Computed example of a mutant assay.
Amino acid sequence: MMTEHSELILTINHGSSSLKIAFFEVHGHTVHCVLRGAAEALGNPPSRAFLCDSIRCVLFNTEKTFASPEKALEVLYAAAIRILRRRPTCVGYRVVHGGPHLLKHCRIDDEVLMTLKESIHFAPLHIPQALTIMQHMRTVLPYAVHCACFDTTFHRTMQEVATRLPLPQRYFDAGIRRYGFHGLSYASIVERLGSDVPERMIIAHLGNGSSLCALRHGNSIDTTMCFTPTGGIPMATRSGDLDPGVLLFLMRTYGLGADELEAIVNRQSGLAALTGGGGDMRAILKGRNDGNACAELAIQTYTRSVRKAIGAYAALLGGVDRLIFTGGIGEHSNEIRDMVCGGLESLGIRQGDRGKGNVMVMAAGEEQEIAHICRTIG
């Protein structure tokens, strides 16, 4: 039950195909979720929006086509306020990329918003929508504290040997470096493991956007995503790493400009390109099981890329004490996890029943992590 004078925090986590919100009540140094919800399949109507209480009882549910994530947020927020009969005093936002200047979680003011606007080119799929949502909620809740929680902050522990790209110094000075993403997801797992964090750990956040992170004593030392969330392993619609010569070839041979290349590598590539259809892993697995050769190729490409990254990080760490899967695919697809782990026994990676083995599955706790950050800086 919520107490009359306790602080209420709203967290907003906008991904590439979904919007998640949660309300947390603060009790001293702890935060407790009292309501959470999501709008799923944004851009692929009909979308579903729902709210659940702390014991997962559905309190609100609707299926409709939302014109934008902020429209979905309006519906979810209005329903939540009717249920809670309270308004939040603090709002925390997941922000994928803060660019080279916003490196720490912070309160949002006009200066922060301006800096984010100047950093749109670092994450063109994510920052514009985050800005729209922030500006909307600042209007809805003008007296609340608003906090930006950056995915890139977690990776500030990476040393220069991991962040520096082999380009001229002037480009590094301009902010072209490895930033890393999914940091709130990784941080939430480290937080929940607590004293059980091993020395050498790899976390695979596998979802619509996917990345892996190598951690030593809970600190990021390397990660697959680089300058933007487009890099690393192939994803639902993102290409992952490409030979730079491919982009030069496309420019010279087909006369493609920057906007066209951006559309290709962010929206028309990855699993969707390999299947010739969509990038939803559930549908691709079904196609594979039905004998679809393109679906088979897509899954083999995806799992092989994840397995290669694990092997590279095992070498970097000098071994693996624990491998953790998270994200929508990582949490829910036994088939993908089995394919990834197949052949990794020589690295000491073993799946087992009843706790035997060093492979774990953990739900991403980004909203809880955002709430903890808000409690600290809000």
Results as ranks from 00 to 15, higher is better:
residue 300 Q to W: 05
residue 366 E to M: 03
residue 291 G to I: 10
residue 194 G to V: 14
residue 205 H to L: 04
residue 16 S to D: 13
residue 153 T to I: 03
residue 173 D to H: 02
residue 359 V to L: 05
residue 327 G to Y: 02
residue 265 V to R: 01
residue 31 V to G: 07
residue 90 C to N: 05
residue 202 I to A: 06
residue 79 A to W: 05
residue 336 I to A: 08
residue 255 G to R: 09
residue 229 P to H: 14
residue 318 G to H: 04
residue 81 I to T: 02
residue 332 H to N: 12
residue 233 I to S: 01
residue 82 R to K: 13
residue 23 F to Y: 14
residue 278 G to Y: 00
residue 117 K to N: 10
residue 29 H to M: 09
residue 321 D to C: 08
residue 357 G to I: 06
residue 141 L to P: 06
residue 15 G to N: 05
residue 184 L to K: 03
residue 147 C to E: 04
residue 292 N to R: 07
residue 32 H to V: 14
residue 349 I to A: 07
residue 202 I to H: 08
residue 155 H to N: 10
residue 206 L to H: 03
residue 252 R to Q: 15
residue 260 E to P: 01
residue 209 G to N: 03
residue 130 A to C: 13
residue 270 G to E: 05
residue 293 A to G: 06
residue 330 G to C: 03
residue 330 G to R: 03
residue 331 E to V: 14
residue 176 I to W: 02
residue 359 V to F: 02
residue 289 N to I: 12
residue 213 C to R: 02
residue 350 R to I: 13
residue 183 G to L: 00
residue 38 A to W: 09
residue 258 A to V: 12
residue 170 R to T: 00
residue 111 E to S: 08
residue 162 A to C: 12
residue 49 A to G: 09
residue 258 A to P: 01
residue 299 I to M: 07
residue 190 V to L: 10
residue 8 L to V: 02
residue 65 T to K: 11
residue 236 A to T: 05
residue 162 A to I: 12
residue 343 G to V: 12
residue 191 E to I: 09
residue 250 L to H: 01
residue 298 A to P: 05
residue 217 H to T: 11
residue 121 H to T: 05
residue 300 Q to F: 04
residue 117 K to Y: 12
residue 302 Y to R: 03
residue 272 A to F: 05
residue 3 T to L: 15
residue 210 S to I: 00
residue 312 A to C: 09
residue 120 I to H: 00
residue 296 E to D: 15
residue 283 A to R: 15
residue 360 M to D: 15
residue 311 G to I: 02
residue 146 H to T: 05
residue 362 M to D: 02
residue 189 I to H: 01
residue 40 E to L: 15
residue 27 H to M: 11
residue 217 H to S: 15
residue 355 G to R: 06
residue 37 G to K: 01
residue 7 E to D: 14
residue 267 R to T: 04
residue 287 G to W: 09
residue 34 V to S: 08
residue 239 S to T: 10
residue 21 I to Y: 00
residue 333 S to I: 07
residue 134 M to L: 11
residue 283 A to W: 11
residue 237 T to C: 01
residue 144 A to C: 08
residue 218 G to L: 06
residue 27 H to D: 15
residue 112 V to M: 01
residue 305 S to Y: 08
residue 215 L to E: 04
residue 28 G to S: 10
residue 19 L to V: 07
